[in-house]
Design a protein around this nucleic acid. Sequence first.
DNA 1: TTGTATGCGTTATCAT
DNA 2: ATGATAACGCATACAA
Lengths: 337, 337
Amino acid sequence: MAVTIKDIARLSGVSIATVSKIINGKDSDIGKPTIERVKRIIEEQNYTPNIVARSMVTKKTKTIGLVIPDVRNPFFTDLVRGAEDVANERGYSLLFCNTDDDLKKEIKYINNLIEKQVDGIALAGAAVRDQSLEENIDIKVPIVSLDRNVYFKGVEGKIEVDNFTGAYDAVTHLIKSGHKRIMFLSGQLNIKLSKDRLEGYKRALADNNIEYYENLVVVGKYTSEFGYESMKNTTPDKAVTAIFCGNDLIAIGAMNALKEKNIRIPEDISIVGFDDIYISSLVTPALTTVRQPSYEIGYQAVEMLIDIMESKKEASQKREIKAELKVRESTCKRRSE
Amino acid sequence: MAVTIKDIARLSGVSIATVSKIINGKDSDIGKPTIERVKRIIEEQNYTPNIVARSMVTKKTKTIGLVIPDVRNPFFTDLVRGAEDVANERGYSLLFCNTDDDLKKEIKYINNLIEKQVDGIALAGAAVRDQSLEENIDIKVPIVSLDRNVYFKGVEGKIEVDNFTGAYDAVTHLIKSGHKRIMFLSGQLNIKLSKDRLEGYKRALADNNIEYYENLVVVGKYTSEFGYESMKNTTPDKAVTAIFCGNDLIAIGAMNALKEKNIRIPEDISIVGFDDIYISSLVTPALTTVRQPSYEIGYQAVEMLIDIMESKKEASQKREIKAELKVRESTCKRRSE
DNA sequence: TTGTATGCGTTATCAT
DNA sequence: ATGATAACGCATACAA
């Protein structure tokens, strides 16, 4: 049987009220000797308060639900760490959920989190959503959505990445380097971030008076397999001298396929990715990419969430995060012919 | 105010005892119509039971603490996912803690987990430990330690990887390919797994009558930087034709340094890593490595933990997991001269 | 300066 | 077939 506040009270010869006050630092009007005695006994008994019981009365669990598609997606692993770091700094714990981009699983997890009385939820929603379904789900705790749009009632904060500008900058970089015929290996277009990146791509072309060709855009999954296959199976148009990829995994897959075909990077084809995951600086040539500060995204999301939770004042916030081009070795000026 | 069991009882015109029974499926002797009515009202009111309150009486939180050094370490990101998957399958939630390999932080987290009344803890301990300190800490919930040794009282299960054999197999592979002078870029030797890998390396040499040279072993951190620097700054002995690396990150760093020096892999030098992290099959040449099934390790650890928690019978288990050599492109037969 | 009493939302025992 | 009630461990308003 674990030792409880009652035991401490009995052993110290005081009431549990007194012990409770001492534990919670509300001991301003309790005698010094009593405080010391009680603290000694707490120490001796190796007593730790039962936070579950405390939560019953305070209505706060000091716990946050973190819901993401998959930690193994390198973008999310850093994000998760950022989230954990703030949570810890602020005295919160993180309940950890992977949805595999499955809205059903996501909703199931969220319900479980609510049953467990989390104080708030940080949610990177599944890709494919169902607005009319979600709008009928009223989540009773504050939610901050990150990176992906969600439609649940009760969403009070948003952290978004400026994908449009990120893509725009990447493609502009290629154009400034002399590339004109630029492929785009895009991820699934049913998520907003993909659409934004595509728009950035288009706009950069337009702003430089380069015509947009639909058949230069190939859509697939955000995996290295997609990148590999799409370069392996179809030889790109001879005039293509650069490829902009929806994310780094696609880019790396594409690079590997091109290497196998003895197409040199960047001399023959320049490649740009998106995300700047850990591996991108380690491949050869090191990948030019658009850096998403995923650690900071996680950090800021949970920070915003806690701020909202702790002072219901400034709810309904939105913060946009810049994505920054990192030029490395997979891009170069196009050789004039 | 959230709707409680009391509200459901009132609205259904029954007692809370009845509602409770229905919620928990203990409704064998409750009337069909009552059950249906209550269930309807629960639905209507969108009621979810308060698990915190339930935990007060059941003494179970259905929550497990997962303590690891850092999710960003690719070995742990897969492990975490395996852990989460079983937890979810078995109806548990995961409280997620990163210790940064800091024993103090680890102990702080564990105390917090205990205060939060977790039913058990899965612990990948910090590298540097303090046996005499730990042995005085009696953790009141079941612990399963994974991958790394810990000395807390209350550790009831262990999942370990056979690092010795993994290293032995890797080095034997190199020897069978004709390599004799094999460097070892080891991680910090104050953790058991590093020692085991070193022993595997030594034994493989010995079993093949190859002398062990201490200066062929370089010790550093388990990072790509260490691999890179140690190959960048010192040119390996001409006779060295193969390098065994303590993990894949070291191997990839080393590969990059060698490439910069125009040393060909595997033609000039063969390289073997350890772990088989995601990136290893994506670099060029694809890395030959010893695969640690990190997802399975996480999965099995938490599975064992739950088994121990749910039936205190077969405590004190130990399970050893094999590490398997994956031959890819970074190793080849040594050219005879 | 300290203690008494109530309640948080639920489960479980024992009645009815 | 259903209900009354104690108990879980703690915080807090109020009393003393």
